[in-house]
Amino acid sequence: MFEARLLQGGLLKKVLDSIKDIITEGNFDCSPNGLSLQAMDSSHVSLIDILLESEGFEHYRCDRNIPMGLNITNLVKMIKCAGSEDIVTIKCEDKPDNVTFLFESKDNDKISDFEMKTMTIDDEHLLVPDQTYTAVVKMPSAEFQRLCRDMAAIGDTVNISVTKEGVRFSTTGDMGTANITVRPNPSGDQKEEERTEVQITEPVSAGFALRYLNSFTKATPLSPTVTLGMVPNLPIVVEYKIADMGHVRYYLAPKIED
């Protein structure tokens, strides 16, 4: 059986908010290491990779690997019924037809349980290689969100160029062009999460669909910083770390010049 108790139930809402615009269903894989999900958007252009490590839960029991296929839209509806401060317990049997969600209020004066039907999802798992990124940019997640939103007001595709001087985001649309350069600022008085840091072995440049990058920024409430990893001619990774728990990562295929 699988049973996991999460003290910060609000975290689950944030995780679901970060994927609900991209996928409509997904297999949550319960394993002794934690709860994970890998899923592609309907156009198979991007890939979501979530990991919530077992150590991050107050109680975690998983005897064997269990794929828990869930409709994300319905899951969002159920988790919405939890208070943001509620403790959430997720429970299911080894071959589940249903998953139980138990919500306990912080003061233990209200307990609710919801049962949701599982579904069989035949999805293709992809092997994401462990790779060294040619360029890694760490920046405030709110700044990245703002930047993607601003770029999307002008064009559909953003070109991201990373050099040791900084990261240049450029787009072109019917009304004109936009360029935003973010420079590394590791030496100021800023707190660590307010800094922009760039690590590169060589300059990298590629174009990406802003529609997807904008969807990824729905994960902003999960982390004060976001990390972009780029390798020439490979998908970009956009990573939001979840403190003491794991991550939400998005991979997006680059645009290819015809």
Binding site: V45, E124, L126, P235, Y251, K255
Partner: peptide
Amino acid sequence: MAGQPTIASFFAPA
């Protein structure tokens, strides 16, 4: 115009 390949054209099936 730039084309949009799928993610599976970069990552092999697991």
